[in-house]
């Protein structure tokens, strides 16, 4: 085990890299979640003219490698005069990827709610938005949580791709320290521990959310 003296010079960079990773994760999830939910709802309950282009878009994005999408945003957009900071470009690319996958997870949960529920709401005269908010989503939510949180964890890990478009995130700082010191294991282990801690929080949130939903929505046996 190398001495602390090897790690110490790079510790502040690792911590700031971790902070960047936390921010990337935060913004990616914060922006991707509502976009994904909107896509899923429109594709499941919206008019066809809106659902069709969205399904094309989702498939285009989810069938591409994430790195290609990031490169397109980072290197491609400047060709059209859109100049973004690396952090912003990475966030945009990760949101696009994440929202595409996430909308598929959510769509599955929405489709699993029996169609008769919306028929019954319509027969009672409930407005469509009301029926979606009060009848459909509360029943889809418990089904959504496990795949959503798994997707969130995958997206947090996916933020390491930002290091490829010159964002100084945790992965970037760890690999940089490794290559300068010729000590690959120690810095990658430290980075791993940081990722583990961050995703551990998400896994914990998932357990809490599932417990809360079990108590709140006693759905049909």
């Amino acid at each position: 085990m190398p001495a602390w003296s090897v790690i110490a010079p790079y510790w502040p960079n690792l911590v700031s890299g971790f902070w960047i990773t936390v921010q990337l994760s935060f913004w990616t999830l914060l922006l991707a979640t509502p976009v994904a939910l909107a896509i899923a709802l429109i594709r499941e309950t919206g008019p066809r003219w809106a659902a069709l282009p969205l399904s094309l878009l989702v498939n285009a994005v989810r069938l591409l490698p994430a790195l290609i999408v990031l490169y397109v945003v980072f290197y491609g957009l400047p060709q059209f005069g859109v100049r973004l900071k690396p952090f912003t470009a990475a966030t945009l690319g990760l949101v696009a990827m994440g929202a595409a996958y996430m909308s598929e997870d959510m769509r599955g949960a929405i489709a699993a709610v029996p169609k008769g529920q919306l028929s019954a709401a319509a027969a009672l005269g409930l407005p469509r938005a009301h029926a979606i908010r009060r009848i459909l989503l509360p029943q889809a939510l418990p089904l959504m949580v496990p795949p959503y949180m798994t997707r969130a964890i995958i997206m947090v890990k996916g933020t390491s791709l930002a290091s490829m478009v010159s964002v100084a995130d945790l992965t970037a700082e760890a690999t940089r320290a490794s290559s300068i010191t010729y000590q690959p294991y120690v810095f990658l282990l430290i980075a791993g521990a940081f990722y583990l801690a961050l995703n551990g929080v998400l896994a914990l949130l998932q357990a809490l959310a599932e417990r809360h939903l079990r108590l709140r929505y006693r759905t049909a046996a």
Binding site: G116, Q117, A120, A121, P138, Q139, Y217, T219
Partner: peptide, 12 residues
């Protein structure tokens, strides 16, 4: 008013 074969009560 409408009553369905499978009730369609709101389970939550």
């Amino acid at each position: 008013g409408m009553v369905f074969q499978h009730f369609h009560l709101f389970p939550h």
